[in-house]
Design a protein around this nucleic acid. Structure first.
Length: 261
DNA sequence: GCGACAG
DNA sequence: ATCTTGTCGC
């Protein structure tokens, strides 16, 4: 390479680079969440999907007050769906799988599988912003919305009570339950050995979930209310969808759908 | 400053 | 989450 003095070209390039980096570093505007009501009467929160941590945290602070841990489930739940979100191509692609089951016999009613470009990196505490856009697309693929969603990941067992399951409940307006395989936050005693026995997951004096022995001899799972449901009911639905495995049939079915090309 | 940290 | 084969145990 020949050594050269700075030329006008170089200056332009430097200025362009400076402008580009300034644009890149510029904090994105904070999306303003809005409350909307659907035709069938679901109240749901709508907001743009951020690409940066700061904007995500601002949204969390704005929507946290709308999390509802009281029951408002339909009189009779005719469908329960398992929601599983994963990643491919080293994280470039987000894959959302939803399998709708008939709770009376756990038979498959319908399923949806979508792949979308990933728009957020993984940041503990902000996982929902990375996963939910694809999950919403998958929900739209269904001919009918499920009455209840069981989501892989936590509900309110999150530092800000806004785990994936809770956040998905807020933006979809549907009742959700968080089914986690690993602890994110909170403290707990060792899980009881007996099947379906559980110990509370605590954050200070607040009960944020249950550490449930879904199967004897295996690691417990973490159940927490997502949205529009209380802990007791979340545990009941988990028990109802459990068979002989560690994970409920809802999440197993979604996992299966996801892991086939 | 150190350690923790869903999927 | 995903990358990956066999292997230990009921």
């Amino acid at each position: 390479m020949i050594a050269r003095r700075p030329s006008p070209d170089h200056r332009d390039a430097a200025i362009a680079a400076g402008r580009a980096s300034r644009i890149r570093m510029e904090a994105e505007p904070t999306p303003t969440p809005t409350l909307r009501e659907t035709a069938d009467g679901r109240r749901r929160i709508e907001h743009a999907w951020p690409r940066e941590a700061r904007a995500g945290r601002a949204i969390q602070d704005a929507i946290a007050e709308h999390v509802d841990t009281h029951n408002s489930l339909p009189a009779d739940i005719r469908t329960v769906a398992g929601v599983d979100i994963g990643f491919e191509d080293g994280g470039e692609t987000t894959r959302a799988a939803i399998v709708v089951l008939d709770p009376s016999d756990l038979s498959v009613v319908e399923q949806a599988l979508v792949r979308r470009p990933t728009r957020m990196p993984y940041i503990p505490g902000l996982l929902s912003f990375r996963e939910i856009p694809a999950a919403l697309d998958a929900l739209e693929q269904l001919s009918a919305l499920p009455d209840l969603l069981m989501v892989d990941g936590h509900g309110i067992a999150h530092p800000k009570r806004l785990g994936v399951a809770t956040h998905l409940g807020l933006v979809s307006g549907l009742p959700t339950i968080g089914v986690g395989k690993k602890r994110l936050t909170g403290r707990h005693d060792p899980a009881p050995e007996q099947r379906l026995a559980w110990t509370p997951l605590m954050d200070g004096h607040e009960t944020i979930g249950a550490v449930l022995r879904s199967r004897v001899g295996v690691k417990p799972i973490f159940i927490s209310p997502g949205h529009r449901i209380d802990l007791g009911t979340a545990i009941e639905w988990t028990a109802r969808t459990l068979t002989r495995y560690r994970l409920p049939e809802t999440t197993r079915a979604a996992d299966r759908l996801a892991s086939r090309r």
